[in-house]
Design a protein around this nucleic acid. Structure first.
Lengths: 167, 167
DNA sequence: ATATTAATGGTCAGGAAAGGTCAAATGGCA
DNA sequence: TGCCATTTGACCTTTCCTGACCATTAATAT
């Protein structure tokens, strides 16, 4: 019942594949794989590779994915450094848009922390601000709307660091 | 109210489950369980596990709970150490209550900054989170209610330091 | 050159496997 | 008795995995 299986929790293949790719990305800026090879390596159907990529390597997580079909096709994952990269900063805010759920909001904060754009304390403050629990509002639509504004506001605030001001 | 760490007058299953989990947490930082397993172990319906967690493992008691659904899902409880169990936090949260306007919210953040409890960056993040502009909600009553929860949530988060976590 | 075929990767919907929510029923105690 | 904590179960949401079918690019035949 109570297994304390250290850092790498979870028994599903998707997490294993995610870890495999991130291990590589921990040593190289970029990883390029053949979808069918990866699928065979982990004994899953090819489309599961897409699932892993879509759920764990999107821009919210700080990754950019490119690919090519046909003979000699590949999937390439690049880790983008959010620190000192205002463009990706804008992209994040773009992703947030007018509405965002808690899960996706957390991914963004996590990515900011991973790239050392924000400290752990700052990350925790931001996470608590957008958490489902604190933000719980009558209808879900407006909850996600408020969350988007709060998150966008905080991220924007990171860009300008002069004096205290409450806007 | 009464922080009874181990009131073992337990005629109810919830107390037994609580004790079981806290025993484990007395030896490990973290416990990860499968809800259905735990439910079967104690012969209760799965949702009772949620009841136990909601009533006994909340952040006020120093526990952080995270979970994942779907295949390989789990519930994970982490015990976090109190850093600043200062009366000041309780007092501030008391002042905030169920509702607070922007001006008063700013004063509280300002006070935390003045007392060097939080950095300028942290202060700015918090200010933007509770600002009237980002938080603008239809009726003012619920705006102040949400502001109170957001501010309270962030302040509570300052008490702990371990790991990133949403919730 | 152009058309055809082979080799890749992409999409999407559905089913299964968790955990979450909520309100009604039950039980204990001041 | 009346309130509050506990227990239960029906129903909901999220996450994972699979397979059928689609789209694009490279290689090859005409």
């Amino acid at each position: 019942m109570a297994e304390n299986s250290n850092n790498n929790n979870s028994n599903n293949i998707s997490d294993v594949i995610e870890t495999y790719l991130k291990d590589i990305l921990g040593q190289q800026e970029l990883v390029q794989v053949k979808r069918s090879d990866l699928a065979e390596l982990f004994q899953v159907v090819p489309s599961q590779i897409n699932y892993v990529i879509n759920t764990r390597f999107n821009i919210q997580n700080g990754y950019v994915v490119e690919s090519k079909r046909g003979g000699g096709g590949y999937i390439q994952i690049t880790h983008v450094d959010l620190l000192n990269n205002d463009q990706v900063f804008d992209d994040l805010i773009d992703v947030i848009g007018d509405s965002i759920g808690q899960a996706n909001g957390q991914k963004i904060v996590q990515a900011l922390f991973d790239d050392e754009v924000i400290s752990q304390r700052e990350a925790n403050i931001m996470l608590s601000a957008i958490s489902k629990n604190t933000l719980r509002i009558a209808d879900k639509v407006s909850e996600n709307t408020v969350r988007a504004r709060v998150l966008t506001g905080m991220i924007n605030r990171l860009r300008y660091e002069e004096g205290l001001n409450g806007q």
